[in-house]
Nucleic acid binder design. Sequence first.
DNA 1: ACATTAATATACT
DNA 2: AGTATATTAATGT
Length: 227
Amino acid sequence: MDKLRPLSQINLLDELPEEELKKIDEVTLTAPIKKGTIILSPAQQMRSLFFLKKGQVRLFKVSSTGKEFTVDLLSEGNVFGETSSFSLTESDIYAETMVDSFVCTLTKERFEEFLRQNPDISLKFITILTTKLKEMYQITESIAYKEVKYRILLLFMQLSNRFGVRSGEWQTVGVKITQHDIASMIGSSRETVSLFLGELEKAQVITRKPLKINTVLAKELYEVEEG
DNA sequence: ACATTAATATACT
DNA sequence: AGTATATTAATGT
């Protein structure tokens, strides 16, 4: 298990007032990026930060045998990338758009300046980072002690809290995710994930459309949260 | 209680 | 049609 896990979960969108968003728009380049585009790779180290304005991005590493290892998923309002002073991801990481997206590029200076001028957002930033840290603790603990079924539910709870919306008894996961993604994020195998997703669906704990997890039963998520 | 391998099926582009 | 993704079964630790 890597000691260095990414601290990439940053959703500043909820905190950003309209004017600030416009300010960002003025000082940065917002580029539309096609689905499946690699915007960050070990070979092409951009010394800048990226602000995901719209869409979804997958962070992954590639093993020596060429297998992809999904590390995290990002959605609207997330910041990732690195500069010389701090990095929000590991340095040898790939970032790929999973859907057509809009991405802002921010220099380190601009970002630091932005934080300096917006103390509230800096605080929000810290909150998000500590939340992510707590999530990583939970995942590592579950990998050490919990069964795969439980790990899947924990991951869904985290994704759901970050990206999903509650509607009645059900809560959406809120991101596109493959079984391979799930497996690498909880330290399991695709086949085992497939098996347990089937069980969870049969037990009516999750619902899903073909190739897509839809919703998770909220009360199950709270039970996971209790431990 | 899983992983791994392989064979098969289904969905996406 | 070709590729990616998911399911199922068999076997091993």
